[in-house]
Structures are given as structure tokens and as C-alpha cells.
Design a protein around this nucleic acid. Structure first.
Lengths: 212, 212
DNA sequence: CAAACGTACTGAACACTGTTCAACAAAACA
DNA sequence: TGTTTTGTTGAACAGTGTTCAGTACGTTTG
């Protein structure tokens, strides 16, 4: 049955085409101004066609949000080469912030838009988010096991770390930073953020002096 | 001219009526489902009338956001009675999180929705946010001056504190918490958040042992 | 008191949005 | 060749923010 194979391939291709166009429009015009009709126009198909490949607009945005996570995991790739546990944890924080600052619209969709969570397919788990958080917990646990840092619960500490870094990213992306911070500090927000991450993580570090 | 006075009073009253209805619909139906027509229906006026009192939907939401800040400042009221600088700073963190958890929709509008910032009247300053941040900076500065905590810059530390707490509030309100945190931790998110605030603030405290 | 004015208000319309459904054309199969 | 399946779409529905010409009423003036 070579015919069915080809048809399935073509279906996959059109789905990918729609998704690519959706990402493009989304990154160009932002969340609120991304309409089904605009996406359809871009690929020269009828708006109705999109509904044959995605249940509704929420499902389409969920697919975009998945692309965002793919990109983020790709961004995290180099971490696997870092052997030192604490260094790896530090870097993950930096890479996370890097990703947020470099892809504000995607970060918004992944971690800020509430709709993205409400539209999880069939109320299943948030796989992408869980995977990302699990990798953070794992890195924290490695530090605890190696007695580099101390914490009662790796999960709680990981959540704390995540919240702090996310807070900076969120304030920046949702434009609360620039309205509040002094003019002379604005160019250094990214630097400040990194220093903050370092400082926070190091405050959990077991003091080597107290060991001796 | 008693007539003009009365007219101005009536105009003010209708504006207040529209705003109250807008807040009510907003708190009931959420940001996305608050339509001009729904607000107009509630007060039995034509949708067109609303545009005689508010330039557009963004201006109306800006007014709601102002109401939110009024409520928050009211929430902060008891702080003025707290004489101990460090205790006051701690409490401000708790009250801020309290406010966020108790008024998620308002917090969303005030600190998360990007539209709220883009629609500042005539690109002026973000007065409400600036005032709130200034009060935090002031409390931090008081702690620094009293040599309770150490920091190079009160503003930078205030920003760091704000970002951390906002991060927790943001993850909670935008529903990323419940999807990622273990089942047994969920009932304690608020508690965890408070402990996190305490821990973070205390890590900046000047160690009394090192003084001696 | 009656006519003119000013203004608070509105109905209808425009251009958009997401979404659905009956209709159609073309490809696949018999 | 005739039938069925499949991919695609135009038109429509209900909703959105917003505008503008028009109305109706309270106030001021002649």
C-alpha cells in the first residue's frame, strides 16, 4: 500500500507547513494578533483547512509551545558535557534565562500564557514542563548527593530556583522592568539577573570552611 | 452655575458605575471574557456610551488596574505600624504574596498582562508600579542604613526580592505550579512560598556572630 | 411660553475574530 | 466507467472592539 504511505506523508507535510507558518506569524505579530486567517493566507490555504489538522486554535498554540520546548532542550544540550555538578546547575540557570531573553514570545507562550495550560490535550499532564523541571530537580539532587549544597528536598529547592529565575524573566518579558528600574541600570538587567542567579545558588552552597 | 456642577457630578457617577461594572465582570469572567457589551448590559447602557467615558478598552482596563493598586496599598496599610525595619520588610513580602494569592485576576492585570503596560496613557510613567516599587526600595534602604542587611544598592536588592516573590506568584497564577509540583506538596505551596521569602531575605542579613 | 441650542445617549454598521457545515472536486478503488 | 472515499473550501454564524450619524431630552435664550 504505497498510496496510503504517500498520503500520510503528505498529511504530515501539510501539518508541518501549517505549524511553521503559525510559528512565523506568532513570532512576527505576537500572541494576540495571530489569527487563523492570517496563517491560512500565508500558506495559501483556506482557514477551514487548518481545522482538519488542528482541533482548534488552542491545539495549534499547544503545538507551537511544543516547538518552543524543543528549542529550549536544544539550548540545554551543552549541559550534558559539564561534569561538575554545581557548575552544571549554575549553567542551567544561565541558559534558562538566556533562552527567555532571546525568545521572549516563545517563553511567554510556554510559561506565561494561562491558556496554554487550560488547553492541554484531554487534561493530560504537562509533559514538556515536567521534563524541564525534572532535569532541574535532577541537577539539584546531584549537588545534594555530592554534598555541594544542602537542602531538605531537591524538589522544593528546584522549585525555589525556578521561581526566582522565572520571576526575572517574567518581569522583563512582561515589560515591568523598564518601567520601574532606574535608567542607568537598564542596560545591565541581563547581567544583574545572572549575578542574582549565581548569588542565590551559592547561598545554598555548603561552606567549605565549616567543613574543615 | 449649579447646573454644571450637577452635570459634572452625574458624569463622575456614571464613570464610577461603568468602572464598578467592569471590575465585577472582570473578576467574574476573567480577562479574556470581559467584553464591552457585557459591561454595558450589566448597567443597562448602550456599549457606545462606555466610549464617552473611556477612550477605549485599554483605557478601561488601565482604570481597573488602578483599582487593583488601590486595593494593594490598602492591603499594605498595617505595615506603617511596624517599627522594626527588618520585620517590616519581611511582612511586605508576605503581604505582597497574600495579595497576589487572594486576588489572582487583579494581580494578573497589574503585573502580568503585557497590554496593561502598552496602553499607558500617552506613554507616561507607570505611576502605580513605581510607587509600589519605591516603597520596597525604601524599606530595603532602611534595613541597609540600620546595618541589618548588607547590599551595594538598595534598588538592585529590591528588584531581586521583587523578582523572587513575583516568580512564585506568577507560576501559581499562571497555573504552572500545579502541573509540575508533586501531589503531596501542592497544599503547601503558599507556606513554601512564605518560607522561601523568609529564607531569601535572611540570607542578606548581616550575621550577628561575625560582628562580635 | 416657545424656539433654538447643546449634549448625553444610542442603533446600525464596519471590520475583524474563531468555528462549523454543506457542498464540491479530485483521487482511489471496484 | 461508475462509485466511494478523501481533501478542500465558500459561506455563514455568533461573537468581538469601535465609529458615526442621528435622536431625544434638558437647558438656555428670545
Amino acid at each position: 500500500m504505497g498510496v496510503n504511505d504517500r498520503k500520510e506523508r503528505e498529511k504530515e507535510e501539510l501539518r508541518a507547513l501549517i505549524l511553521a507558518a503559525a510559528v512565523e506569524v506568532f513570532l512576527q505579530k505576537g500572541f494576540d494578533n495571530t489569527s487563523i486567517r492570517a496563517i491560512a493566507d500565508k500558506i495559501e490555504y483556506s482557514p477551514t483547512t487548518i481545522y482538519l489538522y488542528f482541533k482548534d486554535k488552542a491545539a495549534l498554540f499547544h503545538a507551537i509551545h511544543q516547538e518552543g520546548f524543543k528549542l529550549m532542550f536544544h539550548h540545554f544540550g551543552p549541559l550534558q558535557q559539564v561534569a561538575d555538578h554545581f557548575e552544571r546547575l549554575l549553567l542551567q540557570g544561565r541558559y534558562y534565562l538566556d533562552f527567555a531573553f532571546q525568545n521572549p514570545e516563545l517563553y511567554d507562550l510556554m510559561f506565561l500564557q494561562p491558556g496554554t495550560m487550560e488547553a492541554l490535550p484531554e487534561d493530560l499532564e504537562w509533559m514538556e514542563g515536567n521534563a524541564a523541571f525534572a532535569s532541574l530537580v535532577q541537577n539539584v539532587q546531584a549537588c545534594i548527593d555530592a554534598r555541594i549544597i544542602w537542602a531538605e528536598s531537591a524538589e522544593v529547592l528546584a522549585f525555589t530556583i525556578w521561581a526566582s529565575i522565572h520571576g526575572i524573566a517574567s518581569l522583563q518579558i512582561q515589560k515591568r522592568c523598564n518601567k520601574v528600574i532606574s535608567e542607568h541600570l537598564k542596560p545591565h538587567i541581563a547581567t544583574l539577573a545572572f549575578e542574582q542567579v549565581n548569588l542565590m545558588l551559592k547561598s545554598y552552597r555548603i561552606d567549605k570552611a565549616s567543613k574543615a
